[in-house]
Structure formats: structure tokens, C-alpha cells
């Protein structure tokens, strides 16, 4: 996750409280989605950004995860994400992001 986005996540969390923040990821690769999920839960694994050593434990989901899909209008979802669902390795992404959430999430 780039340094600017890490800073935004950190600032928003400080402002609204960690329990009120949900991070939604749209990354196309399981590995990079997993890294982003790790960054906002356990802290920046590359130790380069503002979230290095800052385990926020935020709620984090990928846009293809069922938890998100079921909570939005089905037509809008199909219109915006339906095509990408066909393209992405959905299972691998869910596995990566969900495992980070389970392991490091606090909320």
C-alpha cells in the first residue's frame, strides 16, 4: 500500500476511531490485496510507511468478498463489478484478505 494511502488510513482512523472504519480493497491480485489487508490490520509489512509497527486491526474487505457483495444493491454490483468477478481469481483474493482479517482484525 503506498505511503500516501497509509497516511490517509491512519489519519481517518485517528479522527473517527478504529471501530468506525471499514477499509474496502479493490486490488486485482491476491498477493497485493493481502498485503493491503495486512497493512491496515497488522501494520505495514515493508516497514516503509506511516503504518509500520502500527497494528490498527481495522475491518477490511475486498470488493469481491460475499460480506460486501450481499450488502449492496445487486444491479449496481453487477454493473460495477460483475465483469471483474469473471476476470479475477476471486477465491485466492478472498482467502488472502479473509485470513488477514481473521488473524489481525480487532473489530
Amino acid at each position: 500500500m503506498d505511503l500516501e494511502n497509509q497516511k490517509r488510513v491512519k489519519d481517518l482512523t485517528e479522527k473517527y476511531g478504529a471501530e468506525n472504519v471499514v477499509v474496502l480493497i479493490g486490488g486485482a491480485e491476491a498477493e497485493s490485496a493481502g498485503l493491503a489487508a495486512e497493512t491496515v490490520t497488522a501494520g505495514d509489512p515493508t516497514f516503509a510507511g506511516p503504518l509500520a509497527g502500527v497494528p490498527l486491526g481495522l475491518k477490511v474487505y475486498h470488493a469481491v468478498e460475499p460480506e460486501f457483495k450481499e450488502s449492496v444493491d445487486a444491479d449496481v454490483y453487477d454493473d460495477q463489478i460483475g465483469m471483474m468477478e469473471m476476470v479475477l481469481d476471486v477465491d485466492a483474493i478472498i482467502e488472502e484478505v479473509a485470513s488477514m482479517r481473521k488473524e489481525h482484525g480487532k473489530y
Binding site: A28, M83, M86, V87
Partner: peptide, 20 residues
């Protein structure tokens, strides 16, 4: 670098739109 196969991802998207 974890960014995948970029041309392939593009082709998949074009193909998926063709399927839709």
C-alpha cells in the same frame, strides 16, 4: 512484484465484456 500479468488481465477484461 505482485502486479500480475498486466496484458493478460486486460485481455481477460475485454473477453469478459464480450461474454456479457
Amino acid at each position: 512484484a505482485g502486479a500480475g500479468d498486466v496484458p493478460n488481465a486486460n485481455y481477460k477484461m475485454i473477453a469478459a465484456l464480450g461474454v456479457k
